[in-house]
């Protein structure tokens, strides 16, 4: 949590039925998202089709009267993220990714230490995108942020655990991708035959557990 007092929410109109609420950063966006869900569950939010959190915004789409909600939002005080109630989702990982050595070099530690640091960090799904069930997980301190690969891979196997910028993510299915791969999990991230289909959704806390 940042120690700064609450900054006013900046709302930008998006077309005729949506609003983009802009905040200072990812912590604030996650806190705003949690507050929007809390108010929606409490019946204190006008009907809205989609609530889409992202890096430092939340999009509210499908509003009958976005101006009225924008005016209301100007008076909101968003509390910091509440303490975790449910235990985190634990994803078992073999830290044997193709870019493990590269990440170790960027972090200035051994490969074993990469696994130790990554599995010792508590992550939170800031938002989803790229593919159904792909979560952008925050939690790594800034000094451990790494760039994307200069050349993306044409195929990244399902279950690959990668790093890019401030995020960690797990590929729900085989796809092209430019993230630095440090390991792989057998966890099924996305299954439309399961309810819920997505193992990780915005707000989910995640821990990775090292498997030999």
């Amino acid at each position: 949590m940042t120690g700064a007092g609450p900054a006013p929410l900046r709302t930008l109109p998006v077309g005729r039925h949506a609003l983009l609420v802009e905040v200072a950063g990812t912590q604030e966006a996650q806190a705003l998202h949690a507050e929007l869900l809390r108010r929606r569950d409490a019946g204190a939010l006008p009907p809205v089709r989609e609530i889409v959190p992202a890096a430092r915004t939340v999009l509210l789409d499908g509003l009958a009267d976005p101006r009225a909600l924008a005016a209301d939002l100007a008076h909101w005080t968003v509390p910091p993220l509440p303490a975790a109630e449910a235990p985190p989702v634990v994803l078992p990982v073999r830290y044997d990714g193709a870019d493990l050595a590269e990440v170790a070099a960027l972090w200035g530690v051994s490969e074993d230490e990469v696994a130790r640091i990554h599995s010792g960090t508590e992550f939170r799904v800031a938002f989803c995108g790229f593919a159904p069930g792909f979560g952008y997980l925050t939690g790594l301190p800034e000094r451990l942020h790494v760039p994307r690969r200069a050349t993306p891979r044409t195929t990244v196997p399902a279950g690959s655990v990668g790093l890019a910028g401030p995020y960690t993510g797990v590929y729900p299915r085989s796809s092209p991708g430019g993230w630095q791969l440090i390991g792989r999990t057998d966890a099924v991230l996305w299954d439309t035959g399961r309810d819920p289909a997505a193992l990780l959704s915005p707000g989910t806390r995640v821990r990775f557990e090292e498997r030999a």
């Binding site: 998006v14 077309g15 039925h17 949506a18 983009l20 989609e50 889409v52 959190p53 992202a54 890096a55 430092r56 915004t57 939340v58 999009l59 789409d61 938002f127 995108g129 952008y136």
Partner: peptide, 10 residues
Amino acid sequence: LPSEGMPLGA
């Protein structure tokens, strides 16, 4: 621009 939500018609 950091990733942000995109509506239909954007």
